[in-house]
């Protein structure tokens, strides 16, 4: 790849980790100086660091579960019989398959949830910056508009009988 003269040469226009001197991706702070370098370390520590603990805990938890199941395997008897392995229907022989066709209303529940809960995603970023200086009544009004739309959705669903379940 032949490189011409690099005309733009600032941190603003080019990502700091991109070094124009070599081909391919190289994550360095070559062009941005020490501040970017610091940011990179902060990135690793602050970003992955905190979630590393979450990951470790997950590993610990998974280990706990695995150990428990392993120990359980040693402690418990294992004598399966066809009767035991038959699906439980209050002592009667199971009729039909185990998976029945489910009612469509569950789909409606899912749909309602999907719409509203995902919209709520926008609430959190807003909620955190809302109190900062410079944001005020206008920001609030904007969120009222948003809430109004969500509310209109609920009203619509209610009028359409989605919220009646019997």
């Amino acid at each position: 790849m032949v490189r011409g003269e690099v005309s733009i040469d600032s941190c603003v226009s080019r990502p700091p980790w991109w070094s124009g001197t070599q081909d391919g991706l190289r994550f360095s702070a070559g062009r941005c100086g020490p501040s970017c370098l610091g940011r990179r370390d902060a990135f690793v520590d602050g970003y992955f660091g905190s979630y590393a603990l979450v990951g470790l805990l997950l590993v610990v938890g998974a280990g706990f579960v695995a150990v428990s199941f392993a120990a359980n395997r040693l402690l418990r008897p294992h004598r399966p019989t066809p009767e035991k392995r038959r699906g439980y229907e209050c002592g009667l022989d199971p009729a039909g398959g185990g998976w029945a066709q489910s009612h469509v209303r569950y789909y409606v529940f899912a749909f309602l949830y999907l719409i509203f809960a995902v919209d709520a995603v926008f609430l959190f970023p807003w909620a955190t910056v809302f109190a900062r200086p410079g944001f005020g009544a206008v920001t609030l009004a904007e969120m009222f508009v948003f809430l109004g739309i969500v509310a209109a959705g609920v009203v619509y669903a209610w009028r359409k009988g989605v919220l009646t379940w019997v």
Partner: peptide, 27 residues
């Protein structure tokens, strides 16, 4: 996974319940 009608119904109900109550929780 249980391949049991009661279990399936229960699972469905529990999912439906989660979905209904997640929204007030989050709000």
């Amino acid at each position: 996974a249980s391949a049991n009608k009661y279990a399936l119904l229960g699972g469905m109900r529990s999912a439906a319940q989660l979905m209904a109550y997640e929204l007030p929780l989050v709000l």
